[in-house]
Nucleic acid binder design. Structure first.
Length: 242
DNA sequence: CCATTAATTTAGT
DNA sequence: ACTAAATTAATGG
C-alpha cells in the first residue's frame, strides 16, 4: 500500500476543473440543505481528489485539517493494533463524511482510512465546515443524525460481537453487508478473506471455514468474492442465537 | 502499445 | 505453515 502524495494530486487537478458544489450530483443530505451562498463557501474551500483501490486516505495519528467527504466508492475505517493485528471498525459508504469525530473531538484522527475500491473524495476545509455547523442549525442537525446513526450501528455491532461465537459473527458480517453496505442480497466482497476476518475479529482460517460451512448448508452461495444469500431466515437466526 | 514472464498476494487446507 | 491459484508488476519487443 502506498501513501500517495495528496499534494501533487490536488495541484494537478486544480487547473482542470472548477466544479461548484451546487452543481454536484453527489451532495450529502446535509449539504443539500445548505443555501446557495453557503454552498459557494464550501466550493471555494474544498477540492475533489480521487484515490485508487488500496490507497491510504488518512493515517491514524495525523492531524485533521480537512473533513473528507466520500463521493463514491467504499472505504474501510481501521486501527492497527500492536501485534500487527488489524481491526476494521466499519465500512464507509459513499455520501458520508470521514473525520467528523475529529471535528467535534480531538483534531487528531483516531482511525486510519483506506480505499477499498477506487474512490472519489472532497476535502473540505475544517474551519468552513465548523462554521456552517455553528451557523446553520438544519445543517448541524443532519450532521448529527449521520454521526448518531453511525455510532448506533457500530456500537450495536461491537456489543453483539463481544457476546457471539464465530458463527454468529460471520452471520452478522454477512447481514451487515447485505443490509447496510450494499442493500441487496447478492454482493461482491470488497476485500480479501483476511480483511473479512479482521472485520469480525476472528482468524482468517476460521472465517473461511465458516463461510464454507454456510455454503454447504445452503445458506449462501459463494463464488470467489461474490456472495449470494440463499436462506435469509436461517442467517438471521444464527445471528440472533450466536 | 501489447504479450509474456516474474513476483507478490490471496485462498484453501 | 504450505501449496495452488490469481492478481499485479516488470520486461522486452
Amino acid at each position: 500500500m502506498q501513501v500517495r502524495s495528496i499534494y501533487n494530486q490536488v495541484i494537478s487537478d486544480f487547473s482542470k476543473t472548477f466544479n461548484t458544489c451546487s452543481d454536484c450530483k453527489d451532495k450529502s443530505c446535509a449539504a443539500a440543505i445548505l443555501r446557495p451562498e453557503e454552498l459557494e463557501q464550501i466550493s471555494q474551500n474544498s477540492k475533489e481528489t480521487s484515490f485508487r483501490k488500496g490507497d491510504i486516505l488518512v493515517q491514524a495519528g495525523s492531524m485533521t485539517s480537512n473533513i473528507i467527504y466520500l463521493k463514491s466508492g467504499l472505504v474501510k475505517e481501521f486501527v492497527v493494533n500492536p501485534g500487527d493485528r488489524e481491526q476494521i471498525l466499519q465500512i464507509v459508504k459513499k455520501y458520508t463524511y470521514l473525520g467528523l469525530q475529529s471535528l467535534f473531538g480531538d483534531r487528531v484522527n483516531h482511525y486510519s482510512y483506506a480505499a477499498l475500491t477506487d474512490v472519489k473524495v472532497c476535502y473540505i476545509d475544517i474551519n468552513i465546515f465548523n462554521r456552517l455547523v455553528r451557523e446553520n442549525g438544519n445543517f448541524a442537525y443532519e450532521i448529527l443524525v449521520s454521526v448518531s446513526r453511525d455510532s448506533l450501528n457500530n456500537f450495536h455491532r461491537f456489543m453483539s460481537q463481544s457476546q457471539k461465537k464465530i458463527y454468529g459473527r460471520v452471520a452478522d458480517a454477512i447481514l451487515y453487508f447485505t443490509r447496510i453496505i450494499f442493500e441487496q442480497e447478492s454482493f461482491e466482497l470488497p476485500f480479501t478473506r483476511q480483511e473479512f476476518a479482521d472485520l469480525i475479529g476472528v482468524s482468517r482460517e476460521s472465517a473461511t471455514r465458516v463461510l464454507l460451512k454456510f455454503q454447504q448448508e445452503g445458506l449462501l452461495s459463494i463464488h470467489g468474492r461474490t456472495i449470494t444469500i440463499q436462506n435469509m431466515g436461517m442467517l438471521e437466526k444464527i445471528s440472533r442465537t450466536g
